[in-house]
Amino acid sequence: MSAFVALLGRDIRLAFRAGGGAMLALAFFIVMAALIPLGIGPDLKLLAKVAGGVVWSAALLAALLSLDRLFQADYEDGSLDLIALSPLPLEAASFAKIAAHWLTTGLPLTVVSPLLGLLYGLPPAAYPALVLSLLIGTPAISAIGAVGASLTLPVRRGGLILPLLVLPLVTPALIFGAGAISAALNGLSNGAFGLLCAFSFVAVIVSPFITAFAVRPNLAG
Protein backbone atom coordinates (compact mmCIF):
# COMPACT_ATOMS: atom_id res chain seq x y z
CA MET A 1 0.00 0.00 0.00
CA SER A 2 2.82 2.40 0.85
CA ALA A 3 4.44 1.64 -2.53
CA PHE A 4 1.15 2.50 -4.22
CA VAL A 5 0.88 5.81 -2.33
CA ALA A 6 4.53 6.59 -3.06
CA LEU A 7 4.07 6.01 -6.80
CA LEU A 8 0.85 8.02 -6.82
CA GLY A 9 2.52 10.91 -4.97
CA ARG A 10 5.56 10.81 -7.24
CA ASP A 11 3.47 10.97 -10.41
CA ILE A 12 1.36 13.83 -9.05
CA ARG A 13 4.46 15.80 -8.04
CA LEU A 14 6.05 15.17 -11.46
CA ALA A 15 2.89 16.37 -13.20
CA PHE A 16 2.79 19.65 -11.29
CA ARG A 17 6.50 20.47 -11.45
CA ALA A 18 8.47 21.88 -14.38
CA GLY A 19 7.84 19.93 -17.57
CA GLY A 20 4.73 18.26 -16.17
CA GLY A 21 1.53 18.51 -18.16
CA ALA A 22 -1.09 19.14 -15.47
CA MET A 23 -1.39 22.92 -15.74
CA LEU A 24 -0.90 22.79 -19.51
CA ALA A 25 -3.85 20.43 -19.94
CA LEU A 26 -5.99 22.75 -17.84
CA ALA A 27 -4.89 25.80 -19.85
CA PHE A 28 -5.55 23.96 -23.12
CA PHE A 29 -9.03 23.01 -21.88
CA ILE A 30 -9.92 26.62 -21.07
CA VAL A 31 -8.37 28.10 -24.23
CA MET A 32 -10.07 25.59 -26.49
CA ALA A 33 -13.46 26.08 -24.88
CA ALA A 34 -12.95 29.86 -25.16
CA LEU A 35 -12.06 29.62 -28.85
CA ILE A 36 -15.25 27.84 -29.95
CA PRO A 37 -17.57 30.85 -29.36
CA LEU A 38 -15.19 32.95 -31.48
CA GLY A 39 -15.76 30.47 -34.28
CA ILE A 40 -19.51 29.97 -34.06
CA GLY A 41 -20.51 33.46 -32.87
CA PRO A 42 -21.69 34.96 -29.59
CA ASP A 43 -25.30 33.68 -29.67
CA LEU A 44 -25.74 32.62 -26.03
CA LYS A 45 -28.78 30.45 -26.74
CA LEU A 46 -26.85 28.42 -29.29
CA LEU A 47 -23.80 28.29 -27.02
CA ALA A 48 -25.84 26.98 -24.10
CA LYS A 49 -27.10 24.23 -26.38
CA VAL A 50 -23.64 23.09 -27.49
CA ALA A 51 -21.91 23.71 -24.12
CA GLY A 52 -22.07 20.06 -23.03
CA GLY A 53 -20.57 18.74 -26.24
CA VAL A 54 -17.89 21.41 -26.35
CA VAL A 55 -16.81 20.94 -22.74
CA TRP A 56 -16.68 17.18 -23.18
CA SER A 57 -14.72 17.32 -26.46
CA ALA A 58 -12.29 19.83 -24.93
CA ALA A 59 -11.86 17.57 -21.89
CA LEU A 60 -11.07 14.56 -24.13
CA LEU A 61 -8.46 16.47 -26.11
CA ALA A 62 -6.91 18.07 -23.01
CA ALA A 63 -6.55 14.66 -21.33
CA LEU A 64 -4.83 13.32 -24.47
CA LEU A 65 -2.12 16.00 -24.24
CA SER A 66 -0.31 14.48 -21.28
CA LEU A 67 -1.18 10.84 -22.00
CA ASP A 68 1.75 10.02 -24.26
CA ARG A 69 4.15 10.80 -21.39
CA LEU A 70 2.26 8.54 -18.97
CA PHE A 71 4.65 5.62 -19.51
CA GLN A 72 7.01 6.99 -22.16
CA ALA A 73 9.05 9.23 -19.80
CA ASP A 74 9.50 6.43 -17.25
CA TYR A 75 10.31 4.00 -20.07
CA GLU A 76 13.02 6.25 -21.48
CA ASP A 77 14.84 6.98 -18.21
CA GLY A 78 14.52 3.42 -16.92
CA SER A 79 12.29 4.10 -13.94
CA LEU A 80 9.59 1.89 -15.47
CA ASP A 81 11.91 -1.11 -14.95
CA LEU A 82 12.40 -0.08 -11.32
CA ILE A 83 8.66 0.30 -10.80
CA ALA A 84 8.21 -3.21 -12.23
CA LEU A 85 10.87 -4.54 -9.85
CA SER A 86 9.12 -3.08 -6.80
CA PRO A 87 6.82 -5.33 -4.69
CA LEU A 88 3.85 -3.49 -6.24
CA PRO A 89 2.19 -5.60 -9.00
CA LEU A 90 2.39 -3.90 -12.38
CA GLU A 91 -1.42 -3.84 -12.47
CA ALA A 92 -1.49 -1.80 -9.25
CA ALA A 93 1.27 0.44 -10.58
CA SER A 94 -0.82 1.03 -13.73
CA PHE A 95 -3.80 1.87 -11.55
CA ALA A 96 -1.67 4.34 -9.55
CA LYS A 97 -0.54 6.01 -12.78
CA ILE A 98 -4.13 6.20 -14.06
CA ALA A 99 -5.25 7.68 -10.74
CA ALA A 100 -2.41 10.22 -10.81
CA HIS A 101 -3.29 11.19 -14.38
CA TRP A 102 -6.91 11.71 -13.42
CA LEU A 103 -6.04 13.69 -10.28
CA THR A 104 -3.83 16.01 -12.33
CA THR A 105 -6.03 16.41 -15.44
CA GLY A 106 -9.58 15.10 -15.08
CA LEU A 107 -10.17 16.52 -11.61
CA PRO A 108 -8.86 20.07 -12.33
CA LEU A 109 -10.93 20.15 -15.55
CA THR A 110 -14.00 19.18 -13.55
CA VAL A 111 -13.31 21.89 -10.98
CA VAL A 112 -13.04 24.71 -13.53
CA SER A 113 -15.92 23.45 -15.72
CA PRO A 114 -18.59 25.63 -13.98
CA LEU A 115 -16.55 28.65 -15.11
CA LEU A 116 -16.91 27.48 -18.71
CA GLY A 117 -20.61 26.91 -18.11
CA LEU A 118 -20.76 30.58 -17.16
CA LEU A 119 -19.03 31.59 -20.41
CA TYR A 120 -21.52 29.54 -22.41
CA GLY A 121 -24.59 30.92 -20.66
CA LEU A 122 -25.56 27.52 -19.29
CA PRO A 123 -28.81 27.68 -17.26
CA PRO A 124 -28.25 27.00 -13.52
CA ALA A 125 -30.22 23.74 -13.69
CA ALA A 126 -27.57 22.17 -15.92
CA TYR A 127 -24.56 22.88 -13.66
CA PRO A 128 -24.91 19.78 -11.47
CA ALA A 129 -25.10 17.61 -14.60
CA LEU A 130 -22.05 19.34 -16.10
CA VAL A 131 -19.86 18.84 -13.03
CA LEU A 132 -21.18 15.40 -12.17
CA SER A 133 -20.83 14.02 -15.70
CA LEU A 134 -17.20 15.18 -15.87
CA LEU A 135 -16.50 13.84 -12.39
CA ILE A 136 -17.87 10.43 -13.33
CA GLY A 137 -16.67 10.29 -16.92
CA THR A 138 -13.12 11.67 -16.89
CA PRO A 139 -11.67 8.65 -15.00
CA ALA A 140 -12.71 6.56 -18.02
CA ILE A 141 -10.70 8.88 -20.28
CA SER A 142 -7.58 8.43 -18.11
CA ALA A 143 -8.12 4.65 -17.91
CA ILE A 144 -8.69 4.04 -21.63
CA GLY A 145 -5.99 6.57 -22.41
CA ALA A 146 -3.55 4.55 -20.32
CA VAL A 147 -4.30 1.49 -22.48
CA GLY A 148 -3.50 3.57 -25.57
CA ALA A 149 -0.33 4.94 -23.97
CA SER A 150 0.87 1.43 -23.10
CA LEU A 151 0.17 0.17 -26.63
CA THR A 152 2.22 2.99 -28.19
CA LEU A 153 5.14 2.46 -25.84
CA PRO A 154 7.33 0.83 -28.53
CA VAL A 155 6.51 3.67 -30.95
CA ARG A 156 9.09 6.44 -31.02
CA ARG A 157 6.56 9.23 -31.50
CA GLY A 158 3.56 7.53 -29.98
CA GLY A 159 1.77 10.78 -29.22
CA LEU A 160 0.97 11.15 -32.90
CA ILE A 161 -1.13 8.00 -33.27
CA LEU A 162 -2.44 7.95 -29.70
CA PRO A 163 -5.52 10.09 -30.51
CA LEU A 164 -6.45 7.76 -33.39
CA LEU A 165 -6.36 4.77 -31.01
CA VAL A 166 -7.99 6.33 -27.96
CA LEU A 167 -10.67 8.67 -29.30
CA PRO A 168 -12.84 6.01 -31.02
CA LEU A 169 -12.72 3.92 -27.84
CA VAL A 170 -13.89 6.72 -25.53
CA THR A 171 -16.85 7.82 -27.69
CA PRO A 172 -19.34 6.20 -25.27
CA ALA A 173 -18.09 8.51 -22.48
CA LEU A 174 -18.50 11.53 -24.76
CA ILE A 175 -22.00 10.49 -25.84
CA PHE A 176 -23.29 9.65 -22.36
CA GLY A 177 -21.52 12.61 -20.73
CA ALA A 178 -22.71 15.24 -23.19
CA GLY A 179 -26.08 13.46 -23.35
CA ALA A 180 -26.53 13.78 -19.59
CA ILE A 181 -25.89 17.54 -19.82
CA SER A 182 -28.31 18.10 -22.69
CA ALA A 183 -30.93 15.97 -20.91
CA ALA A 184 -30.58 18.22 -17.86
CA LEU A 185 -30.89 21.27 -20.16
CA ASN A 186 -34.20 19.98 -21.48
CA GLY A 187 -35.39 18.91 -18.06
CA LEU A 188 -35.40 15.25 -19.04
CA SER A 189 -33.87 12.26 -17.39
CA ASN A 190 -32.61 9.79 -19.94
CA GLY A 191 -30.56 7.35 -17.95
CA ALA A 192 -27.32 8.58 -19.49
CA PHE A 193 -25.84 9.01 -16.00
CA GLY A 194 -26.31 5.37 -15.14
CA LEU A 195 -24.67 4.27 -18.38
CA LEU A 196 -21.83 6.76 -17.90
CA CYS A 197 -21.25 5.30 -14.41
CA ALA A 198 -21.26 1.76 -15.79
CA PHE A 199 -18.89 2.60 -18.65
CA SER A 200 -16.50 4.50 -16.40
CA PHE A 201 -16.55 1.81 -13.72
CA VAL A 202 -15.78 -1.02 -16.14
CA ALA A 203 -13.08 1.05 -17.89
CA VAL A 204 -11.34 1.90 -14.61
CA ILE A 205 -11.49 -1.70 -13.35
CA VAL A 206 -10.37 -3.43 -16.55
CA SER A 207 -7.85 -0.94 -17.95
CA PRO A 208 -5.04 -1.47 -15.37
CA PHE A 209 -4.91 -5.16 -16.32
CA ILE A 210 -4.78 -4.50 -20.06
CA THR A 211 -2.27 -1.71 -19.51
CA ALA A 212 0.04 -3.92 -17.42
CA PHE A 213 -0.25 -6.68 -20.02
CA ALA A 214 0.79 -4.27 -22.77
CA VAL A 215 3.57 -2.63 -20.75
CA ARG A 216 5.25 -5.88 -19.62
CA PRO A 217 7.03 -6.90 -22.87
CA ASN A 218 8.69 -3.47 -23.01
CA LEU A 219 10.55 -4.02 -19.74
CA ALA A 220 14.26 -4.80 -19.70
CA GLY A 221 15.23 -8.39 -18.85
Partner: peptide
Amino acid sequence: ALWNAIEDEVPAARATAV
Protein backbone atom coordinates in the same frame (compact mmCIF):
# COMPACT_ATOMS: atom_id res chain seq x y z
CA ALA B 1 -1.58 2.84 -38.05
CA LEU B 2 -0.36 0.96 -34.98
CA TRP B 3 0.92 -1.92 -37.14
CA ASN B 4 2.80 0.57 -39.29
CA ALA B 5 4.18 2.55 -36.35
CA ILE B 6 5.93 -0.30 -34.52
CA GLU B 7 8.98 -1.48 -36.43
CA ASP B 8 9.58 -4.92 -34.89
CA GLU B 9 7.14 -7.63 -35.89
CA VAL B 10 6.63 -9.33 -32.52
CA PRO B 11 5.80 -6.29 -30.32
CA ALA B 12 3.70 -4.88 -33.17
CA ALA B 13 1.63 -8.09 -33.35
CA ARG B 14 1.16 -8.07 -29.57
CA ALA B 15 0.15 -4.41 -29.24
CA THR B 16 -2.22 -4.52 -32.23
CA ALA B 17 -3.80 -7.72 -30.93
CA VAL B 18 -4.61 -6.02 -27.62
